[in-house]
Design a protein around this nucleic acid. Structure first.
Lengths: 243, 243
DNA sequence: GTCTATAGGCCGATAGAC
DNA sequence: GTCTATCGGCCTATAGAC
C-alpha cells in the first residue's frame, strides 16, 4: 500500500504540477477473498522501489538532466517502457526519490531534546549526521544538488515542515544558551554549521578523495571526522589562556 | 554525435584535449606596426568574457546538462551560431568557466601564513571565505556542482595544485598546534570544516532563504554569519567550567 | 564575423500487439 | 504488465551565404 502512503504525503506537501497519478494497480477488491496485501501490490511496490533505488544513485551523481530514463531502467533491470508504466515521467521519479528520503534525512535533528546535556546532545547530533552521510552519501548529494539548483521541487517542504522543525530546535538551543549551559551562539548559524560540516564529507567526497585518498567509506576516517568536528564545534581552537 | 562525443570526453580526461584553444584571433603579428593589444583581440576577449559570465550564471544554477547553449548565447547577447565561433563546444565553455575561477577561489587559503597569530589568521580566513561566497555565490555553487558530480573535469587540478596548497597550509596549522598556539586538531578536518561552513552560505542559499528569508545579500546577515562561524570555530560551544 | 537554415542525434514518452 | 517499434521535440553543432 505504498501507494496510499505516498498519496498521503503528497497531500501533506503540494508537489509538482499534479499529484501522483494513481498507478495502474488492478482494482484490488475484485476478488473478495484476497488478503490485505495482495501479491500483486507487493510486486508493484518492489519494482517501484528498485526503480527509485536506481534513480537515486544516478540522480545523485548526474543530476536530473544528466540522467536518462534509459539509464535508470537499465540499472533497475526493467525496460524503459516498463518504467513508464510505473511512473508517468522522469520528474515524477525524481520527486518520488526526494520525498522518500526527506524524513530520514531530518531524523537526527528531531532527536535534539531540550532535557539532554547540551554538549552531549550536540556531539551526538554531529555523530549521527556524519553517520547518515556515511550510510547514505547519495541521499546527501541528491539533496545538495536539489538545493544548489534553488530547490525548485523541495522549496515548499523547506518553507513549511523543515522551517517548523528548525524553529523548534533553534528554540531548544537558545534556551541552552540562555540558561548558561551552552556558550552564546545564534542557533540558526550553529545548525547551519553542523549541517555544512557533516554533509561536506558526503557531498564533497570527490574532493576529499582527491586530497587524502580516503573518505567516509573508511571507518577509521569516519571516526576521525566525527571526533574532529565534535572537538572543533564544542571546544573551539583558541587556546585557553591559563586563567 | 554531440552527446556521445561529449560523454566520451567527460569520462576520458580531466582537462579537455588541449588547454585553452586559441580563439580565432587574426594572426596578431601580420601587421608589424599594430600595437601589442590590437582592437580586434580586445573585442574578441570582451565577447569571450561575456559568454563566460553568462555561462557561469546558468551553469551554477542548472548544471552542465541543464543549461542549453541557446540560453548562454541569449544571456550573453550573442547568437548561438556566433557562440560556436568562439567556443568549439558547450563543454569547452564549461571548462573555461571553471578554469577562470579556480585561482581566485583558492586565494584566501594562500593567505594563511605561519607567522600570523593563529586565531587571528583563522578568523580572517573565515571572513574572507564568507566574503568570497558573498561576492561570487555563483562560482561557489558551480564548484559545488562539479565536485558533487565527482569532479570529472577538475580532478587533476584537485590532485595536484590544490593538494599541494592544502598540504602546505596543513603543515602551517600543524605547527601552530604543536607549538601550543592553537588547540590540537587535525589540520585537514579543520580546513574542511572552514570550507564547508563558509561555502554553505552560497551553496545552500536557497535553503537559508526558505528558512530565514534572508541570505548573504543582506550585509548584516553576512556579518552575523562571519561572527558566528568565527565564534563557533575559535571558541567552541562548551561552557568553560569556572576553574 | 555574423547570419539563416538545417542536419542529425538523443531522449522522453506513446501506440498497440500479446 | 511487458514488449517492440516509433514518434516528435529539443538540442548541439555545422553548412554556406553575405
Amino acid at each position: 500500500m505504498a501507494r496510499a502512503a505516498s498519496s498521503d504525503r503528497m497531500a501533506a506537501a503540494p508537489p509538482p504540477p499534479e499529484g501522483t497519478p494513481e498507478p495502474p494497480v488492478g482494482r484490488k477488491s475484485s476478488r473478495s477473498a484476497t488478503p490485505r496485501t495482495p501479491r500483486r501490490a507487493r510486486q508493484v511496490e518492489a519494482k517501484r522501489t528498485a526503480i527509485l533505488d536506481a534513480a537515486l544513485g544516478l540522480f545523485s551523481r548526474l543530476g536530473l538532466h544528466g540522467t536518462t530514463v534509459e539509464q535508470i531502467a537499465e540499472q533497475a533491470a526493467v525496460s524503459k517502457t516498463n518504467l513508464f508504466y510505473y511512473f508517468a515521467s522522469k520528474e515524477e521519479v525524481y520527486v518520488a526519490v526526494l520525498r522518500r528520503l526527506l524524513d530520514e534525512w531530518l531524523a537526527p535533528l528531531r532527536a535534539l531534546e531540550r532535557d539532554s546535556d547540551p554538549a552531549r546532545a550536540i556531539g551526538e547530533y554531529i555523530r549521527r549526521k556524519i553517520m547518515f552521510s556515511r550510510a547514505h552519501p547519495e541521499a546527501s548529494r541528491l539533496f545538495c544538488l536539489e538545493i544548489v539548483r534553488g530547490a525548485p521541487l523541495l522549496r515548499r517542504e523547506l518553507e513549511t515542515s523543515l522551517k517548523q522543525l528548525v524553529d523548534a530546535k533553534a528554540e531548544v538551543i537558545r534556551a541552552w544558551s540562555e540558561s548558561g549551559r551552552l556558550a552564546p551562539v545564534d542557533p540558526r548559524h550553529l545548525i547551519f554549521a553542523i549541517w555544512a560540516t557533516t554533509q561536506h564529507y558526503a557531498d564533497f567526497a570527490a574532493q576529499i578523495d582527491a586530497l587524502l585518498e580516503t573518505g567516509l567509506d573508511d571507518e577509521a576516517f569516519a571516526e576521525e571526522a566525527v571526533c574532529n568536528i565534535q572537538r572543533i564545534i564544542l571546544d573551539g581552537l583558541r587556546v585557553r589562556s591559563p586563567d
